[in-house]
Amino acid sequence: MTLLRLFPQGPTDCETVLRTLAAHAIPGAEETDVPGRVHTRLLHHAGAPVRVTVTFAEDQITVDLPDEIPDPAGLAAPIRRWLDLDSDTARIADALATDPLIRPLVEHRPGIRLIGYPDEFEAVIATVVGQQVSLAAARTFMGRLVTAYGTPAAGLRTLPAPRELAAIPDTELHTVVGLTRTRTRTLRTVAQRWADGFTFAHLTTDEARRALLELPGIGPWTADYLTMRALQHPDTFAPGDLVARRALGSATEDQARSIAEQWAPWRSYALMHLWADAAYTPPGRGGTRA
């Protein structure tokens, strides 16, 4: 195996990173060992899927790669981007901690990172599949999709490519994956858009968000979530997010939006803190209320 060592800017809250990855891991396509601090998945590199095993520590990330792949160092940049390793978490924590409302969360998890997706199409279809269902249900649906239509590689499976997914009839996709018919149509519409060559590359954040909202079945929450997770924009907040609003004392959307203004220009990281406290706290360990 070839070993890469990646050094992040600032501290990393490894437990929250691993629990974030585990909460969204696609069965059959990803494996997460939270106690062992290890996550394994396929990344596309040099025209082929490569099995990548990432091990987390506070001061460095080690990446195990197959020896036979060309240019293994070429995977360093996409992995750094996926795991948000170039963001200065100490600086972000200091800025957010000036607000007494969120300071306890920042003090509890000062090394939170804005974990993204290695592939924008994966981010979009995973988000569409996960609309209005629990994380567990979303993982189940994505696991069915990968099992039925993914390609085996190195003991895991890839997701279907946009053109492959767009070619599956709605009735078949609805039956196999178990999504509602409306969600199935949205999934195939998104797949067709990417199959036609659409990409976020070279779009501004606002342009990407507007393009998402033009797609049927994509609403403000989905657009905000993808702006944050797929584009990894550091200053996005999703005022319609129910978890965040509950964490803010059952705030309305307008109230949540107003509260979040004081977290600029790091609203995405503040939202990650709210999610981590509500959804990624280890079993048996109480969260720290905002």
Rank of each mutant, 00 (worst) to 15 (best):
M1S: 14
F7E: 15
T12D: 06
C14D: 01
E30L: 05
T32S: 13
D33S: 05
T40S: 13
H45D: 07
A48F: 02
T53K: 00
V54W: 00
A57Y: 00
D59H: 00
V63D: 01
V63R: 03
V63H: 03
D67R: 03
G74D: 08
L75K: 06
I79S: 08
L85M: 07
S87G: 13
A93M: 07
T98F: 09
D99A: 13
I102K: 04
L105Y: 01
L105I: 06
E107A: 14
I112M: 11
Y117N: 07
V124D: 03
T127Y: 02
V133S: 04
L135E: 08
F141E: 00
L145C: 06
V146Y: 02
G150T: 02
A154F: 08
T158Y: 01
L159R: 01
P160M: 07
P162R: 08
E164R: 12
A166M: 08
H174N: 15
V177S: 02
R181K: 14
R185I: 12
R185E: 15
T186V: 10
T186N: 03
L187N: 00
R193F: 09
A195K: 04
T199I: 12
H202D: 15
A208S: 11
L215N: 08
G217I: 04
G217H: 04
P220H: 15
P220Q: 15
D235C: 10
D235S: 06
T236W: 03
F237C: 13
F237W: 12
A238T: 14
P239N: 05
R245L: 05
A247W: 06
A251K: 09
R257H: 13
R257A: 15
I259F: 13
I259M: 11
W263L: 12
P265Y: 10
R267K: 11
M272Y: 09
P282I: 08
P283L: 07
G284E: 04
G287S: 07
R289E: 15
